[in-house]
Design a protein around this nucleic acid. Structure first.
Length: 487
RNA sequence: GCCCCCAUCGACCAGCGGCCUAGGUCACCACCCUUUCAAGGUGGUAACACGGGUUCGAAUCCCGUUGGGGGCACCA
């Protein structure tokens, strides 16, 4: 079995899902996975896009057996470098009489299409150049008129194939027009290019988006006239946005690069995407190995699936919790750097804090980019904004609480999480405060927010001196607020 | 306009004629745990689009309706 998904633009949720299903199918069946780049549309496929596609695929861990960089017996693997092969195939079809020259100009075609629409007929090509007499052809040639090359499709009969995910599809030939395979400037068109490449690369299974479903009979016909064995086809339904419309840029960014930047794990993304159109009765979290083992293309849902960010976020959190601390630390560092918490080259002291913070954030983040906010107080003396302070520090007992605690903390020895915690709990008990009232003020004093990593840990990590400083500052602010409030 | 595809909780999947009083997961709600926020635990709300057949029996098969999507290019 050989499969060759062919990205024709930058990687996003939709085409990565297609790519992943190809990959899973190939790995599951022990087949060969070929990567072919369809880069003939230079307006949307630049050299940077090419690099980005390879980088994204590597990041996702979707490796290919033949294709760019690894190469293989069917090189080149970039469609833009294969045009001679396509043109040669077209010439063969022309010579055999399966294809013919069409001298209609674009203007004529557009006009006839408009007329057909107005008369409620099919807007496709009417086949008139197929019926040209030798004299007419000679006339056009003498004029030096440009021509496209079209394949002739008979009106009688039907094309039938068994789609791997949808099932039996039958199409009447009168629904298919004589479509063009070569432009008047000699450039090969899409249908020709894929069919020729699939044939030459001995692709046996074509798994792609269902936007190509209606065009598949054309390609099957082409394969047949070219003398290729016809591959099996499997068409995947669209991925939908939250509004149930096909996912697109309108729905915000769906590019793989952006998911990476936002702190999604490739493991989670792969798992999640695999479940978009396929699934098992019970399990949701499935490792790459389990996916390969259990994935079956014939189990794929024929109906479109909606891309649900909430479930992705949950799953990403699950995968974060599954990581070893060292692994999570390594992955989260770039996010601390980008958030400005530490420099591009963290100091030893910073590295120690980062490592110590990992277990504190592990159950609290769903995306890596959420980490910095939880531990900001570890690295900087966060600003206390007055609204947060007013909510948390204005209560009557706060100044007393802080003062007593500061006295206790001054004597804590050694300075460990246990002793710090004991000091705070001691004061809380002494003042008969509920946990909420006893500890919330410290969160704000130390981290600037009530949403943060656990405060005993933070206090321990920033040290006695810094800790007392921040409490002092919060105490002053608390008194200041109380003063303004009463006056 | 013509052709094709699709249709189970809000979302993703399970279901391939009786195991269905329709199962799992996310989300949502409640409770428990708890130093904030989470994580974790327990429980709960919630669906076979509609109408006809076929059958002893239908979410599962057939037909139609409705709704959604795609295609009909000298785009890919």
């Amino acid at each position: 079995m050989r499969a060759a998904p062919a990205p024709s633009g930058s990687l996003h949720v939709g085409n990565v899902r297609t790519f992943l299903y190809n990959w899973l199918h190939a790995r599951h069946t022990g087949g060969i996975f070929v990567l072919r780049i369809e880069d003939t549309d230079t307006s949307r496929f630049t050299e940077e896009a090419y690099e980005a596609v390879l980088e994204d695929l590597r990041w996702l861990g979707l490796d290919w057996d033949e294709g760019p960089e690894v190469e293989g017996p069917h090189a080149p693997y970039r469609q833009s470098q294969r045009t001679q092969l396509h043109v040669r195939a077209a010439e063969r079809l022309l010579a055999s009489g399966a294809a013919y020259r069409c001298y209609c100009t674009k203007e004529e075609l557009n006009q006839r299409r408009a007329e057909a629409m107005a008369e409620r007929r099919r807007p496709g090509y009417d086949g008139r150049c197929y019926r040209l007499t030798p004299d007419q052809i000679a006339g056009y040639e003498a004029e030096g008129r440009a021509y496209t090359v079209r394949v002739h499709i008979p009106d009688e009969g039907e094309v039938v194939f068994e789609d791997l995910v949808i099932g039996r599809i039958a199409t009447q030939l009168d629904q298919i027009d004589d479509f063009a395979i070569l432009r008047s400037d000699g450039a090969p068109l899409y249908h020709l290019a894929v069919v020729v490449d699939d044939g030459l690369m001995e692709i046996s299974e074509v798994i792609r988006g269902d936007d190509l479903l209606s065009n598949t009979p054309k390609q099957i016909l082409l394969h047949a006239t070219l003398g290729n064995p016809v591959p099996s086809f499997g068409h995947l339904p669209q991925v939908l946005g939250p509004d149930r419309k096909p996912l697109s840029k309108r729905h915000g960014s769906t590019s793989i690069a952006d998911f990476r930047e936002t702190g999604y794990l490739q493991e989670a993304l792969v798992n999640f995407l695999a479940l978009l159109g396929w699934g098992t009765a019970d399990d949701t979290i499935l490792s790459r190995e389990e996916l390969v083992l259990r994935f079956d293309i014939s189990d794929v849902h024929p109906s479109p699936a909606m891309f649900d960010t909430k479930k992705l976020d949950w799953m990403n959190g699950e995968y974060i919790r599954l990581l070893a601390d060292e692994d999570l630390t390594r992955r989260v560092i770039p996010f601390y750097i980008r958030a400005g918490l530490v420099g591009a080259q963290p100091t030893d002291d910073e590295m120690n804090k980062i490592a110590a913070a990992t277990p504190l954030i592990k159950t609290r983040i769903r995306r890596l980019d959420e980490a910095p906010a939880l531990v900001r107080g570890l690295f900087t003396r966060v600003h206390l904004d007055r609204d947060t302070a007013r909510n948390a520090l204005l209560a009557e007992h706060v100044p007393d609480l802080f003062e007593r605690t500061m006295v206790q903390l001054a004597h804590v020895d050694p300075w460990t999480k246990e002793t710090v915690e004991a000091a705070l709990r001691g004061v809380a008990e002494e003042m008969a405060l509920k946990p909420r009232n006893a500890f919330a003020p410290f969160y704000v004093a130390v981290s600037g927010s009530t949403v943060s990593a656990p405060v005993f840990d933070l206090m321990t990590l920033i040290g006695r001196e810094e800790c007392l400083l921040r409490l002092r500052r919060a105490l002053d602010l608390s008194r200041d607020l109380a003063g303004t409030a009463t006056s």
